[in-house]
Amino acid sequence: MSESESKGQRFVALCMLGMLLFNYPILALFNVSGTLFGVPVLYAYIFIAWAALIASMAFIAESGGRQ
């Protein structure tokens, strides 16, 4: 498998993970009252998950594919 192919597959998997994280029912788990560091749980969850997703994208994009 070439490097670009394996990179592509990692990205596709990441996109699927993202769709899971930002949709019902995972989203509903955090749709509760209460706060995290003073920020409502849902808001905190979305921004943290989003940042993690971007970090993973950076890792895949910059690291190259599986050898």
Binding site: G8, V12, L14, G18, M19, L53
Partner: peptide, 13 residues
């Protein structure tokens, strides 16, 4: 903005 982030994950393809 989350939608585009997900789409950009597919940009490589």
């Amino acid at each position: 903005y989350i939608g585009p982030t997900l789409m950009i994950a597919l940009w490589w393809v």
